[in-house]
Amino acid sequence: MNIFRFLGDMSHILSFVILLLKITQGKSAAGISLRTQELYMIVFCSRYLDLFWNFSSLYNSFLKVVFIACSSAIVYIIRFKSPQKDTWNPELDNFPIQYLIGPCAVAGLLINQDWTPFEMIWAFSIYLEAVAILPQLFLLQKQGEVENLTSHYVAALGAYRGLYLMNWVYRYFTEDDYLQRIVWFAGTVQTGLYIDFFYHYYQSKRGGLSRPVKLP
């Protein structure tokens, strides 16, 4: 464990807290992509199957359960719970996620670490996580303006993987046999997708005023 990875996990937890607060207190899922939340639920439920046989640390096992529980709760609330379910707009949030899941599944089959069934599923989840934010970014693009809490949610989510990039650099230079090309590549792509958002987020927050984030 290093500070980058710890801060990355905290940033990821923060993103869950912000989103759960927004949809439970704000009683609205407007501006939130259910598609992205469904993809995250698939990512965590597939990647953390090894909950049942890998116990690298209590910290890891605990957070795996938390991430599966939170992502499932978010999908449940937006899909089934009133009044949130009425604030979800299927016409707007209509990114064809099958075009993300399909290629990631093929990639997981073809490019993975040890050719065991779990490694294929693990690689699939890594690739899918890299592109899971796309429906959310497309939804924000359509709306042009980003609600304040949603902008903090996306920023925390982007920061989490950005901090993981630093964690991988740190581990590469401090550990001998550390090599995780799959997650390095996918994590770089994932963070790259946020760069445009971060630019507009910074511009809108720079003046200290909480001017709304505007996406062109």
């Binding site: 990821h12 090894d50 046989w53 890998n54 690298s56 065991t116 779990f118 490694e119 693990w122």
Partner: peptide, 10 residues
């Protein structure tokens, strides 16, 4: 082993 032993990150 079912795999994933060296994935010690979340």
């Amino acid at each position: 082993a079912w795999g994933g032993e060296d994935h010690d990150e979340l």
